[in-house]
Amino acid sequence: MTQPLEIRKKQYKKLVDEIKPRPPLVRNTVGAFIFGGLIALIGQFLLNFFQGQGLSVNDAGAATSSTLVFLAALFTGLGIYDEIAKYGGAGTIVPINGFANSMVSPAMEYRTEGFVLGVGARLFTIAGPVLVFGILSAWLVALLYHFFR
């Protein structure tokens, strides 16, 4: 108790790291692999289906993303998505439907704060940064391509 604060902080950090439970790495990565893989598998089925309907490769891809996004919005609304995510971990974040979940979940909860500043604004809590950095980096890449091709 009488030691300088910096030393106490260091000692305490060591103690916290010692006692803190490690994440169940094997279970988590297996979960992420299976759920992420399954979603990609569903995506592949959809892709094949839409291409079979005569859509071009690009259009079939867009239709597949839209379908996955729709399913994610539905599952989030029904309150199932977070239950799946408990087991799927990153397997439910990385696929395009994770993006949709990150839009629906805050928008739904902030419905009580109105349509404009509640739903409208909160749809982009996480989607906003994703679009900002995605658009910015794609623009940069295209600019470099323009000048240095």
């Binding site: 867009a62 309150g79 928008a107 995605g134 295209a142």
Partner: peptide, 24 residues
């Protein structure tokens, strides 16, 4: 860039909005 992902973004906004409105 945005033109290429327009379908995905619109789908996410539209389905997201509808889900937020219809579900509690």
């Amino acid at each position: 860039g945005v033109a290429a992902v327009a379908t995905g973004i619109s789908a996410a906004v539209i389905f997201g909005y509808l889900a937020a409105i219809f579900f509690k």
